[in-house]
Design a protein around this nucleic acid. Structure first.
Lengths: 203, 203
DNA sequence: ACCCACCTACGAGTTTCCCCCGATTCCACT
DNA sequence: AGTGGAATCGGGGGAAACTCGTAGGTGGGT
């Protein structure tokens, strides 16, 4: 019997410890990796092919939702369990839209985590509470644009963003222009506040 | 030799697990209790008399800072280590004012936690490197600089700020330069996040 | 096959930002 | 009286950001 392989993605070491402890206490479950950023999670997931990914939302560089979107674009998307600080119907909707299969709160992780992972391993979904089952709308931004939004909101310059995404400065600036136009924003300052309001980055 | 008794206060079960794991891996250290709210922490501390309290800031009912204030009003105040999500100079100031002896970030807890608890157990204080650096050279902003911070964080350009404050563009730029230097920030994006963290503007 | 959205890329120009200097006035504290 | 901080004003220069227009390649949908 092969073990259930689980990837942990959270930027807080303490949370990773806690998750690992809970997971490894269950017979037949194993942690196949720990990621500290969304981008890290994407690469680790592609290397280790976990059955399930336990993913925090608020992470530097690439947040959990965006990482989920990218991973779920793969031909065989992994089962992703979102770990969130807040009980927000808006966030749950975005989570569903991104392709995640579960959503639990950090405050009642523990047995809830075990239940959720068990459900996901069985191919089911798991949601903590009220599921606003409405289809996703919002998201007028493209995935690439959301990446740029996050990096810009984290204080990176266009040149740094271009390097990170392996594109030219010009392309990066084109994205920024399109983003500001789409969102009717006037400056980076407003973009940062937009990103914080929408949980794309932490304050 | 009596063990070092440590009280954990955090509303997230995962974080409590992680903290307990790290603490109990150190010989001679023991967790004498776990509190899930600030009020709970106060009562537990009065019952169990821990040597050290590891306290989260964001907790329901009574936040970590207020709990710290109440506990430090006792004749023999306990050593309190604040566990925070954010690097905020304002929070650090409040933390110090409340009577805490240490401040570390959740993102680099783990070895930092062990170092900090060790320091506190020896009667010393412990502050994260970055935090110490922030607390030092940041000092305080002048009232005028705070005005500029707010307007800049609201997305105004320097020219608009100058008009609003009835000063010249050059003066406004001087203020901005001084602000970034004082706070060790690199860009407007970081200034916006600083302003939001410190409740100077709303997201 | 076609169109459209997306990502990519370039040039040329304007605006804004950021940092290096310098300076004066005012006011509070010693 | 002197010291120092705060607030004001200024030049100059380089970096970054933003605007405008243009355009090739790809993938999905009709």
């Amino acid at each position: 019997m092969t073990p259930l392989r689980i990837l942990i993605a959270d930027d807080h070491e303490l949370v990773r410890h806690g998750l690992r402890r809970v997971i490894e206490d269950v017979p037949g479950w194993t942690v196949c990796g720990e990621a500290t950023t969304g981008r890290h999670a994407v690469t680790l997931a592609r290397e280790t092919h976990p059955h399930i990914i336990v993913m925090d939302i608020a992470m530097p560089e690439l947040n959990g939702l965006e990482a989920t979107r990218q991973l779920c674009a793969a031909p065989v998307p992994p089962a992703i369990l979102i770990l969130s600080m807040h009980e927000s119907t808006e966030l749950i909707r975005e989570t569903l839209a991104a392709g995640a299969r579960g959503y639990i709160l950090k405050s009642d992780a523990g047995h809830a985590l075990v239940q959720a992972v068990t459900a996901l391993a069985a191919g089911k979904k798991f949601f903590n509470n009220k599921i606003a089952a409405l289809a996703h709308d919002s998201a007028t931004l493209t995935p690439r644009e959301r990446e740029v939004v996050q990096l810009a909101a984290e204080g990176r310059t266009s040149k740094e963003i271009a390097t990170t995404l392996a594109i030219t400065l010009k392309t990066c600036e084109a994205h920024r222009t399109n983003i500001l136009r789409k969102l009717s924003l006037r400056s980076i300052s407003e973009l940062v506040r937009y990103a914080i309001r929408n949980n794309i980055v932490e304050p």
